[in-house]
């Protein structure tokens, strides 16, 4: 990992204020910012890892847990909120046994809340990877997630 990170830092050598760009590159490479990646960065950049972590946590774009094989996004925008998005979120959380922002133990799913997917007519909306599921109910959620789990990622 260290050599990879050195390579990334080289891209931004001697540029001031490049920390966020570096973090973005690291996230692009690994999918998230692991604690190892941050300590390696700290050592190379000669700033403390706590400082880097502080900067990174300010931005929602950075993730600190390894993303699962499937990205589940539940919309809690205005329309979805009105049509019971929170109930959907709760169901998904219970089904996967994680909170939003986390990844399941078997690294199959990671769950995120989003503000609007731009298809409010379909509310409430859930998105798995790139597939959009509209007008979903708690029962449907279970089936959808089960399908993904069984088929290893392919939609039925």
């Amino acid at each position: 990992m260290k050599s990879e990170i050195k390579k990334i830092i080289k891209l931004f050598k001697d540029k001031k204020g490049a920390l966020i760009s570096i973090l973005q590159e690291v996230q692009k490479k690994y999918g998230y910012l692991s604690s190892e990646a941050i300590s390696a960065l700290a050592e190379e950049l000669k700033i403390s890892e706590n400082e880097i972590y502080g900067v990174a946590t300010f931005y929602t774009q950075f993730k600190f847990t390894k993303p699962g094989n499937h990205q589940v996004k539940v919309c809690l925008g205005t329309a979805c909120h009105v049509r019971g998005g929170h109930g959907i979120m709760e169901t998904v959380e219970r089904q996967l046994n994680i909170k939003h922002g986390e990844t399941t133990k078997d690294s199959q799913f990671s769950l995120e809340r989003v503000a609007c997917m731009g298809c409010c007519a379909l509310a409430p909306v859930m998105v798995v990877d790139n597939d959009i599921f509209g007008k979903i109910t708690s029962t449907k959620v279970k089936n959808i997630l089960n399908d993904y789990n069984r088929n290893g990622g392919k939609k039925q």
Binding site: S35, S48, N50, Y53, G54, F58, F64
Partner: peptide, 25 residues
Amino acid sequence: CQDIRGRGTLAFTQRSHRTKISTAF
């Protein structure tokens, strides 16, 4: 911690309501 001692053990993490003084992770 950062400016006088040069350690940087503490940092502001998260933002808005959840802002907290903490160490990495």
